[in-house]
Design a protein around this nucleic acid. Structure first.
Lengths: 336, 336
DNA sequence: ATAAAAGATGAAAGTGCTTACACTTTCGCA
DNA sequence: TGCGAAAGTGTAAGCACTTTCATCTTTTAT
């Protein structure tokens, strides 16, 4: 069943059928109804490929993320997908792992597939080295590139990010004010957001003339399988003489390890040991006491990201970079 | 840059270019190299829409799931996406929520988009009422439908499922043998897999002449936000006189609530209180002691699902239904 | 050496839609 | 009552590929 069949049965030209299909041009009510009747009777739907050929778009956006089964990334993908669908777009998902080359390859693949735009879901190991951003810049010459939780100043690339620096900075100050001694920052990677978090922690500690102590967990690569190993890591540090009573974690998984650690050490939380998570994920409910965590308002970020993208696709001028501040969701592991 | 440009620059016809592009027909080594050189020099990639029009496929599979941010579904989506990519297919993701109508609508949308097949990721509230399966059967007349963790006997629909009945049946028997009294089954929905789990529990209890006690958590709808509420629910039951020392949970989230409950009640786990989770998700590491859980080998299921789909797409005869057995991963919340 | 089979190539006809352009009809207003 | 504008409709030219079929060139077998 093609547009020709419909036009024939309705006694009009294919142009007219196309017009009623797209609501373009002008068609009299009478013929519109006649065509619509035929379309409904035969349950005709236009061929998406042909339409794509003609319009040079299939209303599809590519989403690239390292691992859609990661707690945080999964949420991001979910919200993005919802927003896109609400705007009449579909999404092609590409899970690339954390290798930069794989991301670049995925971008190429999506361009070949003729998507209308690409969303890179960040907060990973990407965007560290300026040179490596080349593939993003290149791609941006063909279609708009949206960066979630990553930033890059280049034509046709738009960033929306959470203000991780400010969130951690504020939180650290609060923990210091609460009188917790020896606050450490427990993190796993020097990702874009990881760097900003670290900087926030450092700034707060320095402001109060305290020595910063960032604890880097080397082996942990964004996967969350290994809370026991993380806990052992902390215990190991403890055994080698490092003592601390406050943990600012770069994500909830690490914070959970800290909770376990505190229990093992016999500290009482939050009285003599405070723990702050990040992401406000479902993990906050998975420990005793429940985890205080920073919510970076992912849904808001995604909503903004998509509305920006829609604007760009409609040829509007849009802000190149938007920053949203997070908030501390207080639960049982902190005094603030 | 089109195929015409390439053909011109290479001094051949477009048919020949098309042949080297697709490896179809036969082309002499010499001209093949010449064409390839031109293609590389100009970084030409064929237009996906035109190709789609000609081939009537764009090598894309639709994935429908209720909520890609759900722990289990996210993993499923991830594995499916990986497998598809490995086979040269892309995936369009549709998150529909748990409403049946939304699923049906998504199926229609994907068909309109001309995907080559649709994967319905199940274990939800779907497939309960025979009548409601109509949309699946209808869709199957147009393209192959793959069901993960759901089953339906109809032409052109293929199911791969985990043997939830057997897993729970075996586990319940083991818990009974371990001497745990008053074993309850803690679950949240009468989904396809939920029903089979319940049946497995019932069968084991009856076999040992024990009275089954399924605890249905009404408000919980597949979201995992509310572990505290689940815990309160158990405490409420306790306060109204219900005592038990073994929990078979229909997923890890519920099991986690049971762990919290056991701690609140002062039971020592696993000596006088046993808890068995389901899915072997990351949550197993999030409690003390760590959770024994049933692994239903999701990756294997997905792998098999995709290889079946690939077979179907290549016109091969494929098994309509495959069942995989799960296994108990023993950790700290059970004696077995 | 030669017929037949196999291999290489191109012309042209799809594939199903959009849309610019031209044409006809209708309408409002002078 | 006529005329210009606006509305309605059709023709035909894309859009960028695949593929059949016919033609020509090699190879192979006899």
């Amino acid at each position: 069943m093609t547009i020709y069949d419909i036009s024939e049965k309705a006694g009009v030209s294919i142009a007219t059928v196309s017009r009623v299909l797209n609501g373009s041009g002008s068609v009299s009510e009478k013929t519109k109804k006649r065509v619509l009747d035929v379309i409904n009777r035969y349950e005709y739907t236009p061929n998406a490929f042909a339409r794509g050929l003609g319009l040079n778009t299939m209303k599809t956006i590519g989403i690239i993320c390292a691992d859609s089964s990661d707690l945080y990334l999964a949420k991001a993908v979910y919200h993005i997908e919802q927003q896109l669908r609400g705007n009449g777009y579909d999404s092609i998902l590409c899970c690339t792992g954390y290798e930069l080359e794989a991301k670049a390859a995925a971008v190429g693949l999506l361009i070949t597939k003729k998507v209308d735009g690409i969303i890179l879901v960040g907060s990973n190991f990407i965007y560290e080295c300026e040179a490596d951003n080349q593939y993003v810049t290149d791609a941006a010459s063909q279609l708009p590139i949206m960066l979630l939780n990553a930033a890059l100043d280049a034509p046709n690339v738009y960033s929306v990010i959470s203000d991780d620096f400010a969130s951690i900075y504020e939180a650290t100050l609060k923990m210091i004010s609460a009188g917790i001694p020896d606050i450490v920052y427990f993190y796993n990677s020097a990702s874009y957001s990881g760097k900003k978090k670290l900087a926030g922690y450092r700034a707060a500690m320095e402001e109060k003339a305290l020595s910063a102590n960032p604890l880097l967990l080397q082996f942990y690569q964004g996967s969350h399988e290994d809370i026991p190993a993380m806990t052992r890591h902390l215990v190991g540090l403890h055994d080698s003489g490092l003592k601390f009573h406050g943990v600012i974690a770069s994500d909830d998984t690490l914070a959970l390890a800290a909770v376990k650690y505190a229990r093992l050490m016999g500290y009482s939380v939050p009285e003599d040991f405070s723990i702050l998570g990040y992401n406000n994920s479902m993990l906050v409910n998975c420990c005793e006491p429940e985890l205080t965590s920073i919510d970076n308002r992912l849904e808001t970020l995604c909503r903004h990201l998509i509305s920006t993208l829609m604007g760009v696709l409609n040829g509007k001028e849009m802000p190149k970079k938007t920053v949203f501040s997070g908030e501390i969701i207080r639960r049982g592991t902190t005094l603030f």
